[in-house]
Amino acid sequence: MVIKNYVVVTPCKNEEKNLPALASSIIDNTIKPSLWIILNDGSTDNTCIILNNLEKEYNWIKVIHEKESIRDLGLHYSDIVNKAIKCAFATCEKRSINFEYIGLIDADMILDKDFFEKIIDRFEKNPKLGVCSGTVAYISNGQKTLEKGREKHPIGGLRVWRKKCLEDTGGFPTSYSADSVSNVLAILKGWDTRKYEDITGIQTRKTSSAEGMWKGLITRGKSDYYRDYHPVYVILKFLKYSIKPPFYTGIAYLWGYIIGVIVIKNKINIPEVRAYYRNKHLELLNLKKGTER
């Protein structure tokens, strides 16, 4: 396989416990990135020291330090990822780095040693593949378990885009659940999207738990309002969350959706994305005439 250049971006905030393991897993990968942009979103712990040491030791690592801010997995997250991606493009142009792929890797991941080699191989075998991801794994009592998800839905913190796909879709969208919106935009542009279970990253904390599960589920509720999820579909999600422990997740999720209605009010300003979600939900609910389950 001819190895194509790739770059990586990572947003982080107060990740002194997780960054060393992530850095080791990227540095030791069978194929190293041509550039790794790490955006420090106003950390107040020892994250800055760790990042500065990495930047001094490796000339392909570049760190951006932002001012201190409140941790926010909503619109602010998409803004900082956008900054990191734009910095990656600008730095590559300045350093004359030609790249074919760009990854978004969260700071609480530990990647398979051949993570990028496998991902790039999948891209090379399928020219229509626009964005894909590995699968999150957790280690509990010495056992490795995979996070459940749908095969055609790449996840946020382990994703890689084909550069052409990211450009076709206008870059990383400003939205709640921007990774999911990015998937939709890729699909609407005719690209394939995939999540691979044989390519993994170990996550050191549960998805959406950086601010605690309660806040994480509130953010998820806000996101579903912002992306114009069908109200019946929202009620079904609330019930699904409510029937399994921890039972409060249903309340947190629904409260987040209500906050969206009362406070956020505006929804994502990409009509084709809103239509995509509505049509999908109508099909799933079997409410759209002529559709099948």
Rank of each mutant, 00 (worst) to 15 (best):
M1C: 11
K4C: 08
N5R: 03
Y6F: 10
P11C: 11
P11T: 11
E15N: 06
K17G: 06
N18H: 13
N18R: 12
N18V: 14
L19F: 02
P20L: 02
A21W: 14
S25I: 02
I26R: 04
N29M: 01
S34R: 13
D41M: 08
D41Y: 11
N53R: 14
L54W: 07
N59L: 03
N59R: 14
I61P: 09
K62V: 15
H65I: 13
H65Q: 09
H65W: 03
K67V: 09
S69R: 15
I70F: 12
K83I: 15
A84C: 02
A84H: 04
I85F: 07
I85E: 08
K86D: 12
F89H: 07
F89N: 03
C92G: 00
E93W: 01
E93K: 08
K94Q: 10
I97M: 10
I97E: 02
G103R: 04
I105T: 10
M109F: 07
M109S: 10
I110T: 12
D121N: 15
R122C: 05
R122T: 09
F123E: 10
E124I: 08
L129H: 00
G130Y: 03
A137H: 10
Y138W: 10
S140N: 14
G142Q: 04
G149E: 02
E151I: 13
P154W: 01
G156Q: 05
L158F: 07
C165Q: 05
L166W: 04
D168T: 05
D168I: 08
T169C: 02
P173G: 01
S175P: 00
N183A: 04
A186H: 05
G190P: 03
G190V: 08
W191M: 00
W191L: 03
T193F: 08
E197K: 13
T200G: 02
G201Q: 05
I202K: 12
I202S: 05
T204G: 03
R205S: 09
K206M: 12
S208Y: 15
G212C: 03
W214R: 06
L217F: 10
I218A: 03
R220K: 13
G221T: 08
Y225K: 07
R227M: 14
D228C: 14
H230N: 15
H230D: 11
V232L: 11
I235V: 12
K237P: 00
K237V: 00
T249C: 15
G250D: 02
I251H: 11
Y253I: 09
Y253Q: 07
I258K: 01
K267H: 14
I268M: 07
I270L: 10
P271Q: 02
R274F: 04
R278M: 11
N279S: 07
N279G: 00
L282H: 10
L285W: 08
N286R: 13
G290N: 06
T291I: 05
